[in-house]
């Protein structure tokens, strides 16, 4: 699954992996805003934004091919959305939108692939995302793995009892059975949430989830922030109008 790959990338010894999560998040937003607000991309601007994303891949020692492929996951929905433009003869505009969404996905992958989720969530909090949402996000990500494993087991169990595609089509009451399987999964999730809450109470939880102190910003972080934002702004302002 995706997160396993992202975690593996995050452990690579790249320069970007060592940077503070807050800085990377701000740089990502800067890049996305610059890209999202640029006038229709001409070749120089597209190349400029592409080079910035590529620099991220290099600085993070990420596998270029894998990043390129994974970012392509946005293309099907992008193509669907751009279909109207293509059919309407505005192929250039459609291409423009696709390039933008593709480059955005690459940028997100670069940051996600070089930053552990824990750091990213804390960065979100220090940039003003409500703490409540951040803690919910953290618990969601933590139990994503546990529950999807449970769902896999359940799917196997359902299938081994003959509730396969043909079976479900033949007998509508089996639809009920599948709904029942989800209900069981949901009930188990509730029980798990209860158990987690108990484990928190057992360790003195009093309604607030506290973190250890975040790492301090280092000179390299400031440098990265300044350079990244300058370059994004430069590409946006200069190259975008050069076309």
């Amino acid at each position: 699954m995706h997160h396993v790959v992202l975690d593996e990338w995050g452990r690579r010894p790249g320069w970007l992996q060592k940077r503070d999560a807050r800085v990377k998040l701000v740089a990502l937003l800067g890049y996305l805003i610059a890209l999202g607000t640029a006038p229709p991309l001409a070749l120089p601007a597209a190349a400029g934004f592409g080079a910035l994303a590529a620099a991220g891949v290099v600085l993070g020692k990420l596998p270029a091919g894998a990043v390129a492929l994974r970012a392509a996951l946005v293309l099907p929905i992008g193509l669907f959305l751009a279909a109207g433009l293509l059919l309407g003869g505005a192929a250039l505009r459609a291409g423009d939108l696709l390039v933008r969404s593709y480059l955005s996905a690459v940028a997100v992958l670069v940051v996600m692939g070089t930053t552990p989720m824990a750091g990213l969530l804390r960065a979100m909090e220090s940039l003003g995302v409500p703490r409540f949402l951040v803690v919910v996000l953290h618990f969601l990500y933590r139990y994503l793995f546990v529950l999807s494993e449970q769902a896999q087991h359940m799917r196997l169990a359902v299938r081994s009892r003959g509730l396969d595609r043909a079976g479900l089509r033949r007998c509508p009451s089996l639809w009920k059975a599948a709904g029942g399987a989800l209900a069981v999964l949901f009930a188990r999730s509730l029980a798990r949430a209860e158990a987690i809450h108990r484990a928190m109470l057992a360790r003195g939880y009093r309604g607030q989830v506290l973190w250890l102190r975040a790492a301090r910003m280092r000179p390299g972080d400031w440098l990265f922030l300044a350079v990244a934002l300058t370059l994004c702004a430069a590409v946006r302002v200069v190259l975008a109008h050069a076309g």
């Binding site: 552990p116 989720m117 824990a118 969530l121 953290h138 618990f139 990500y141 933590r142 139990y143 546990v146 798990r192 158990a195 987690i196 108990r198 484990a199 928190m200 057992a202 360790r203 003195g204 939880y205 009093r206 607030q208 506290l210 973190w211 250890l212 102190r213």
Partner: peptide
């Protein structure tokens, strides 16, 4: 607890081990 997945609820092992200490108001 029986299921360590229920006990290890924090994002990293270190944060998890420090959880009880922070809840009690210890200096980070």
């Amino acid at each position: 607890f029986q299921d360590p997945d229920e006990q290890l609820f924090m994002p990293t092992v270190l944060e998890d081990v420090a959880f009880a200490l922070l809840c009690r108001g210890m200096d980070p």
